[in-house]
């Protein structure tokens, strides 16, 4: 006991200290934002331009596959808003559907965006956009979209027969100009089912998922992508509409430095212990 210094804490106390700093570093920017400039990556610019260059009158499909943190933060609000801008200004029609493995949360996410996140002025449900809701089956749903959009479901999220929805009448998968998805799991199912269609595919995914998808991105199967939370924040900056996603960038900065500091500290302590 005599050789034990005051800083030789128990593992529980060490964990508590690590967590305390996490809380502090996440909380400080809320009180005093750092306001560091956010550079826009080329991938984000390309994502934005791809959406803005959708030809007039085209129909696109967005497959919602994001997870609970997006549901709470509403981190996709910016590009949902852009979809509605495109509907108003360019007569683009959008099909929203989810086959998210997290279950009905994907459908709830779409509904949340449609209820509160977007400006629906001058757009009409059924003519400009349709919500097919959450459909069970994950890859089977993606396969159905790739084969025949009419076979995906018989009813939309509100129980209206798809055959009664104006913009769905006579629509085929070939008519879809662009397919997009957000996901938190492996990107392979989307690539397997949608890649052979040869249509532009947009992707929104977490940082680790983008790393996994780089092969598809470099091969051109994925036309453009948003890289995790930072990609979302960049998109908001390009689009000029800001949400929580931009606000948490300061916390991301501090947490990143904290993580690096822990790595260094850990190795210094380990080196000292080894002698």
């Amino acid at each position: 006991m005599s050789g034990k210094k005051w800083y030789h804490l128990s593992m529980d106390a060490q964990d508590s200290l690590v967590y305390l700093f996490v809380i502090l570093l996440c909380g400080v920017p809320v009180i005093r934002p750092l306001g560091l400039p956010l550079a826009i990556n080329e991938s984000t610019t390309h994502f934005y331009e791809t959406l803005n260059n959708i030809p007039e009158g085209s129909t696109i499909l967005w497959n919602e596959g994001y997870m609970v943190q997006s549901y709470v933060s509403g981190s996709e609000i910016a590009f949902y808003r852009l979809f509605f801008d495109l509907m108003r200004e360019n007569d683009v029609k959008v099909i929203f559907v989810s086959s998210c493995v997290d279950g009905p949360l994907g459908g709830a996410m779409i509904q949340k965006m449609l209820d509160a996140g977007v400006d629906k002025t001058d757009t009409v449900y059924g003519r400009d956009y349709v919500n097919l809701g959450w459909l069970p089956g994950f890859e089977a749903v993606l396969a159905a979209i790739a084969q025949d959009i009419q076979s995906v479901t018989e009813e939309d999220a509100y129980g209206t027969p798809v055959s009664d929805i104006e913009m769905m009448q006579g629509l085929t998968t070939d008519d879809l100009y662009l397919l997009g998805f957000s996901c938190g799991v492996s990107v392979d199912p989307w690539m397997r089912q949608w890649g052979p269609l040869g249509k532009p595919i947009l992707m929104v995914g977490g940082e680790s998922l983008i790393a996994q998808a780089m092969g598809y991105i470099n091969a051109g199967t994925v036309e453009a992508y948003l890289n995790g939370g930072r990609g979302m924040a960049e998109f908001e900056k390009v689009y000029g509409f800001y949400t929580l996603q931009t606000a948490i960038m300061d916390s991301v900065n501090l947490m990143s430095l904290y993580g690096i500091a822990l790595i260094i500290l850990s190795n210094v302590l380990f080196g000292k212990k080894k002698g």
Partner: peptide, 28 residues
């Protein structure tokens, strides 16, 4: 969904905190 599942799943996400202790202990 709103008042049970989402808070529970958010709590699970707080598990991300452990990433930092993992870094502290494992990144040697």
């Amino acid at each position: 969904m709103d008042y049970v599942q989402t808070p529970i799943m958010m709590t699970i996400w707080v598990g991300a905190f452990t990433t930092f202790t993992m870094v502290f202990r494992g990144a040697r």
